[in-house]
Amino acid sequence: MTAVTTKPGLDQIWQWLDAVPDPEIPVISLVDLGIIRDVVWQEDTLVVTVTPTYSGCPATSIINLDIDTALRGHGIAKLSLKTQLAPAWTTDWISDKGRAALENYGIAPPQPAGGPDRCPHCQGRNLEKLSQFGSTPCKAQWRCRDCLEPFDYFKCI
């Protein structure tokens, strides 16, 4: 390859974005979370399309700032961030790598059944819901009746 590359490839850019942590749950990346919907070069401008998790998610502006900072740090000078509402974000877009990282961190990953599958601490299945909402808009609070530990559950939407 030539020494000077002004336009990094899209695979490379996805890799860089996969290194940007979610500001509220830093064990998973923005790519794992499924909120980066598209990355494309338009002439010499890189256009990154992001969708919000929840309408009022206070992290949205921080997320945009983090993307901006990361990509500029890799030398991308012309960058445009687009917000896209439709199709609305769904937890189905969280990657398998992201789901495993969530559970490792103590957050039960989303399940179509609407509740956690097992306790992220002891894998117990004797669970109860404490509250439909949690410390961030995307989480609910549950408790394991086996190990008695409370834990966050990533809401399925």
Binding site: Y54, G56, C57, P58, L130, S131, F133, G134
Partner: peptide
């Protein structure tokens, strides 16, 4: 838990407002 739930509900509503 209810405090958090109410605050989260408010947040969703304000987000929709935007």
């Amino acid at each position: 838990e209810e405090d958090i739930a109410l605050a989260n509900t408010a947040l969703d509503l304000i987000g929709q407002t935007q």
